[in-house]
Design a protein around this nucleic acid. Structure first.
Lengths: 168, 168
DNA sequence: TATTGTTATACTCTATAACTATA
DNA sequence: TATAGTTATAGAGTATAACAATA
């Protein structure tokens, strides 16, 4: 009886290229699910390119960009901006220091001002260019208007559900 | 000199409520970044509610919904639909079995048909209701038209960058 | 008292390689 | 040969608790 039901699935699968495309997909209509799939797909693509071309992960490139735009900021500020907890910033910053991309200089005995090294600035520029190219792919999919509306929708969703950039 | 620059940041921070809001945020204009923040914010909210009310993670609820909609499917099918690798499906399915929510019955000696138990069907219904309520929050933020356009944009992005539902 | 940086730790998610048994 | 399930393992991401030094 169970075997018979299963048999129907197997028969259905025989007739098509991708087996699972004949299965019902009720979660496909869920916004949260679609958002997550889009996000992971886009991030995986960016991560692969950054890994190949600058040997950095997206979060590391993001930190370089933020430090470049905010010289002498401290890592707690970055954590709050990015929604990353203090404790988890430690190995990130240590990794970028170990690669010689950022520098720390003490400002008040308990915190350190961050700045890009020369190599860090070069890496930041390459990351920025890679991200530009990455974004550009979306420009071929969506009009300027569509893109602006997508941005607005994402901003609404993020602020409604809490972007976690506070209370770290 | 460095201390002076840093001092300016400290001064700027003094005048406002949230320190980091005065920092430049050049990644805020990146679609990939916004997509990720929106996705994690929405998923964190859903995860918290599901944890409280049904003691399940979003991925577990999603599996219950898919098994409910596709009785006698096998776990490899689910993995392909969800972009989860075979190896990583094992503990997920084992966990749901351990909770008595799904059952396996052998269909051909190397694969197992999955189905919901009575408790599994009850859990699936509660998860579905929770997800409905969760989606409903977005309806207050976006018009039906906006929501449809957001869906379309996400589908374009996901398919362009690869949804990884193949080649598992 | 609150904040910064840190250590230690744990859980989830993801990825690969290798194995078995079956088709 | 290809597929299904499994094991083991490793790397990320994220979370909490606790601590020392400093504001």
């Amino acid at each position: 009886m169970l075997k018979l039901l299963r048999k129907r699935f197997i028969d259905a699968r025989m007739s098509i290229a991708t087996p699972e495309s004949r299965l019902n997909d009720p979660v496909a209509k869920r916004l949260g699910y679609r958002l997550r799939r889009a996000s992971t797909a886009m991030m995986a693509d960016l991560g692969a390119k950054m890994g190949e071309e600058v040997s950095l992960r997206p979060v590391e490139g993001t930190i370089l960009i933020l430090v470049g735009a905010n010289p002498e900021c401290i890592q707690s500020d970055l954590g709050r901006m990015l929604g990353i907890k203090r404790a988890n910033m430690v190995p990130l910053i240590a990794g970028l220091m170990a690669k010689g991309l950022i520098e720390k200089s003490p400002v008040d005995g308990r915190s350190f001002a961050l700045s890009l090294t020369k190599a860090g600035e070069a890496a930041r520029a390459r990351v920025d260019a890679l991200m530009d190219a990455h974004e550009q792919q979306v420009a071929t999919l969506l009009s300027t208007q569509d893109r602006a509306e997508l941005f607005a929708a994402l901003a609404l969703i993020t602020s409604h559900f809490g972007d976690d950039a506070s209370g770290q």
